[in-house]
Amino acid sequence: MADDAIIRVRDVSVQFGSRRVLDGLHLDVGRGEILGFVGASGAGKSVLLRTIIGLVPRLGGTVEVLGTDMGTADAATRRGVERRWGVLFQHGALFSSLSVRQNIQFPLREYLNVSPRLLDEITLAKLAMVGLKPDVAGRFPSELSGGMIKRVALARALALEPEIVFLDEPTSGLDPIGAGDFDELVRTLQRTLGLTVFMVTHDLDSLHTACDRIAVLGDGKVIADGTMSDMLASQHPWLQAYFHGPRARALAS
């Protein structure tokens, strides 16, 4: 699988002030894989995600995405790679002065040369995929609920048919039915489009149903990496607490 890695993180360290958040982290994500990334709150999952997409400067190490070393590539190459991924930020990061429709169409208008009719149709298709009704298209982000913001942000992340999507807690703030639909949507997209998904999540259901592989972050490193059954079998105390805690048990029963 390491040969087919679409994201390759080697020995990455990140530090804020004197506090080291990531410390020599290694991680591979294979093509067409759905990786669930877990870890305690504040462990640095969002920081890792932001480091991979180049928003947080690295102290050391290399990040390779789609075969391009993001540290040494020139600006044009980097932009080429950036076009091929979609990102859902933890807090949505919708453009507050654009309506939902304009938010989704923003990357489309920039990169594709299609008719306004098709733009509108695709916007509605994306909205429907993430479980939103067409009438939200005209609203502004400040007029949406927290879960709706998440969904619109996901629709925007998927707008350009990316090869990789980075999702930071996509199901937090969604009702259980919505979260279930979301898991199914991710599965469908993976199957049909060969999408690779890097998903930070605390949602045990998502980990169960959507993820092919789970990686666990602790002390700035990946402390465990494997399928759900590997996680369940692990003797690591934190993993025990995470996957066999009261919430996990309630789920299993």
Partner: peptide, 18 residues
Amino acid sequence: DDYSSLVDEVRRVASVAV
């Protein structure tokens, strides 16, 4: 089979009046 679920997804989309 792979593509039919995608077409099913878009089938739910209502036609738009521009």
